[in-house]
Write a protein that binds this DNA or RNA. Sequence first.
DNA 1: CACCGATATGTTTATCTTTGCATAACGGCA
DNA 2: TGCCGTTATGCAAAGATAAACATATCGGTG
Lengths: 125, 125
Amino acid sequence: MGKRGKSNRFNVFLNYKLWLSSMSGDGIISEVVYTLLNGIRDKGSLKAAAEAAGISYRKAWGDLKQAESMLGYDLTEKTRGGKKGGHSELTPAAKKLLEAYAALQEKLDDAVEEAYLELKKKMEN
Amino acid sequence: MGKRGKSNRFNVFLNYKLWLSSMSGDGIISEVVYTLLNGIRDKGSLKAAAEAAGISYRKAWGDLKQAESMLGYDLTEKTRGGKKGGHSELTPAAKKLLEAYAALQEKLDDAVEEAYLELKKKMEN
DNA sequence: CACCGATATGTTTATCTTTGCATAACGGCA
DNA sequence: TGCCGTTATGCAAAGATAAACATATCGGTG
């Protein structure tokens, strides 16, 4: 075995987070909102989506509301009462946003991965 | 004036944050650490760097310490006492990290900008 | 029409993060 | 050797964020 090898390994991960905000920076659409939208699409209710996301219903509802108010249009159509007590579903705008966001994330995942490899190469020397 | 124009503008900004972490997820090297390292390089002391970064010395010191412990090697060489009461400077490893990080950030800024334009185009329809 | 389960929202509690305060150690310098 | 300004570090206080709790409303359904 040579002296080279696992010696100075840059053993660290590169993480990133992205979110949308208004120019004033107040309202935001964060990762959790995307998770919630996905959950609503799959489960048909905000409650179930919140549970699946592991956050309180109170927060889920508040985050979603603020996202909608920031955008200026609805992402969900919600009803109370009815057969199952109520339900929520995505608006066409929300579906479009989810699609666009998925593409965005994929693109950035790639860019980050690439950048990470370069960083690593530079650091490992 | 035509009907087209500022109608459905996707008036929202894309933000991102990145950081390095160990696989165990305990320690992290965040934006503030890079800011601090830059400050230390420029000002020669952690205290001054913390002030410039707008965070408490206590946090600056803690974050830096945890970053170093995560990496397993020092990013700064610090001395107490002496002519000016003490000072801090970057290790060669830290300088390398700063350089690599700057390149990384530039690359990702570009990628994010590009992805944002695409997102916008998709959303504006 | 009483019940169920989900939306809607205010209020209180708990948790997590950051700051602030206190105190010690250090080493040139007057 | 006493002072100064910085690093070093524990601990309490303050702020921010999220969870929990408490109701109220709604509209099918038994």
